[in-house]
Design a protein around this nucleic acid. Sequence first.
DNA 1: AATGGGGGCAACCGCGGCGTC
DNA 2: GGACGCCGCGGTTGCCCCCAT
Length: 339
Amino acid sequence: MRSPSSAAAAGAGGGGGKTTPCCSKVGLKRGPWTPEEDELLSSYIKREGEGRWRTLPKRAGLLRCGKSCRLRWMNYLRPSVKRGQIAPDEEDLILRLHRLLGNRWSLIAGRIPGRTDNEIKNYWNTHLSKKLISQGIDPRTHKPLNQDQRTDNSNNESPDANSTAKEVSSSKKPLINHSIPSPSPTSNPNSASSGIEEIDKELLPDPNPTTEFENSFPINNLLPKYTDGMSNTMMRIGSHVLASHEAEEDINNYCTDDVFSSFLNSLINEEAFTASHHSQLHQQPPFHVASSSSDTLMISNPISALGLGWESAIMSSTFSQNNSEAPKRVDNYGNGHIE
DNA sequence: AATGGGGGCAACCGCGGCGTC
DNA sequence: GGACGCCGCGGTTGCCCCCAT
């Protein structure tokens, strides 16, 4: 990675080849940041805090547009930004998350402390994408290239997590409710960590299930809110309502950010993919609600959940970075235990 | 030593969602 | 309900560095 000084030495120009300024005001500086500008921005934000990017440049004495200031702070100046090469475990995590989430870099970055969405995006485009291709894997779908071609010709039947990620990543429509605070590194650190995202309608479960699993388990009974407002569902997931004796109620009452963080942790666990997929797909409902006294929910069937459109729920789980404790698991009867 | 090309990455842009008026 | 402003995201661009020739 280039040092700030070297970036500054690059002189005017920098990224973005378009001539249209991002800010309507003329006379604003563009291109690489100088150390002096960095110092101005850093000291101001340390003194006054983040936010109000539109007016921040003027208040800080910078001839930059607010977007440029925000980007510089988020991607470079923030103390929490980690420097140095992507570690092998981070690379592995990026691969797994991308397999689940597609090109939602901010969400992926939210799971990797100290890394920014821009950094991960660049790393993906310059390293991992090529690496996968060299291994004969489609970087978009994470499927073998030849298999992917077959899949593309088969009307996308039986979508799985990969195809879901592909669809989402290729969709122009953002999936994120930006107004909801997120502890993502690119978000305001003062925000609460309970931000929840809406589920894109494209990811909603099929109201007329046709798969074997869907027929065997009445998922629609558990997801009533999806039909009239997915945001309601997700907001309730963040409500931390975990009455253990109400296990048969709307599943949404039991879903918390921490729960989905555990959910995602299990999703990015290779064992979850290799060992539990087939058996759980046909034997268990997608969620198992704990009956213990603690606020516990175990999602023991992440793959099934993915297939039913719960992939989007992963997004909310990415907001619980601080949930580093071992996820509590429950068995089919709701008995919780610590893994 | 000169130079051409590719890799890496910081920075920009357009777009869409949300909040406010 | 519509207009407007702000914010954040993903995609893209272009400069610098490094290496091969």
